[in-house]
Structure formats: structure tokens, C-alpha cells
Design a protein around this nucleic acid. Structure first.
Length: 191
DNA sequence: CTCCGGATTCGT
DNA sequence: CGAATCCGGAGT
């Protein structure tokens, strides 16, 4: 049974400690919540990508266990936040059993409570949610940064599967259908 | 130490 | 299509 924080039904550790593709698909529709300066920012997850572990050539953990990738090798339910192109932050959720080094990249949200600005893309998502590298390694079972269940009665959605974006260097792995998004949602980055 | 390129975004 | 802008990881 999930714990409640300010009416949010926070996802439990066990949710994250499962098969990465299952977690990725089930994250669609969930609420990303960040409490900052006493105010809640909420975004509804509409697009994600799965990174399956060191054998996945597109995953950062395929470079081995380094200072940067350490969080990916840690326990599930923690945030892996890194800087890309010197400008943008990207947020992942660590999945699977500890040491599996798999994660789900959050690529887009639809804006909810308190969220201002564009959110369709991993860098735009983190900016709108005020997520940066100070949150790298943060436990998503905290009371200020977590993911929660969708509201009861939320309409069901269809899931679209596509190749991941921006990983052409990964050979055959770049063609795997590991990007998932909610069909027809206007906040998906590249429909 | 230097060098290269990136799970992106924006402006031309 | 190229610039922005910084740092991790690899090579010398």
C-alpha cells in the first residue's frame, strides 16, 4: 500500500524494482512531484525511454561503473540526473534490482499544478520541474521529490512504442523499441 | 594534462 | 544546420 504525502499516493520501492520495460510503460500517466520552497510542482508523465543496463550500448552504464554512472548501479527508486551538452539536465529513474544499472529517462510531461513553461523534451521537463544535478541520487520515496499514482478515474491511454531518440551511435540498440509515449498526447516531444 | 563528443534545445 | 556550454571518460 503506497504512502500518502499531501494527498499524493507515492509509488513504493517495489514499483521500481521490476523489469525496466514494465516500469517504463507503467510510469506513463503517473505524476512527477517536486516540492520546492513549500510549493508543489506536478507533471503528468507522457513520454519515457528505457535503458536496460550495461549490455545496452545506449545506456550510460554500458561505459562501466564510474563516478557519473554510480547512481544507475545503486538501488531502484532513486533519481539519476545528469548534465547533457553542457546546458540541459536529464532525469532518470533507477529500475530493477540493485546493481542491474538500468533506468528510465523521463522525456516529457503534461504540465500540472505549479508548472510553468514548456515540458516536451527531457531538458525542458527538468527545467519546468526545477530539477537539476543537486537531485542526482535523490531517493524518490522522499516527501519532496517522488512519483505518485494517477488520479482514480483517469481515462485509460494507449501506449506507442518507438526507437529511442538521439542514440544513433548505439548500433542495433538504437533500433530497439524502447521509447514509450501516450498516443495522441500533445506534450509528447516528437510524436 | 588535452581532446572529444554527448539520452538537447534554439535560432538561422 | 550549427552554436551553445560543460564535464565525463579516454588517451597521451
Amino acid at each position: 500500500m503506497p504512502s500518502a504525502t499531501a494527498n499524493f499516493e507515492k509509488l513504493a520501492r517495489e514499483f521500481y524494482a521490476r523489469d525496466t520495460i514494465d516500469v517504463a510503460i507503467e510510469l506513463l500517466g503517473k505524476k512527477l512531484v517536486h516540492q520546492i520552497d513549500g510549493r508543489f510542482l506536478v507533471g503528468n508523465i507522457v513520454e519515457v525511454e528505457a535503458y536496460l543496463g550495461p549490455h545496452d550500448r545506449a545506456a550510460h552504464s554500458s561505459k562501466g561503473r564510474t563516478a557519473r554512472t554510480e547512481v544507475m548501479f545503486g538501488p531502484p527508486g532513486h533519481a539519476y540526473v545528469y548534465l547533457i551538452y553542457g546546458i540541459h539536465n536529464c532525469m532518470n529513474v533507477v529500475t530493477g534490482p540493485e546493481g542491474h544499472a538500468s533506468a528510465v529517462l523521463l522525456r516529457a510531461i503534461s504540465p500540472g499544478k505549479g508548472v510553468v513553461g514548456r515540458t516536451q523534451g527531457p531538458g525542458l521537463l527538468t527545467r519546468a520541474m526545477h530539477i537539476d544535478r543537486t537531485l542526482n541520487g535523490a531517493d524518490l520515496l522522499s516527501d519532496t521529490f517522488f512519483i505518485a499514482r494517477e488520479d482514480p478515474g483517469t481515462a485509460p491511454h494507449r501506449v506507442v512504442r518507438r526507437p529511442r531518440i538521439g542514440v544513433d551511435y548505439a548500433g542495433a540498440w538504437s533500433r530497439r523499441l524502447l521509447r514509450f509515449y501516450i498516443r495522441g498526447n500533445p506534450y509528447v516531444s516528437k510524436p
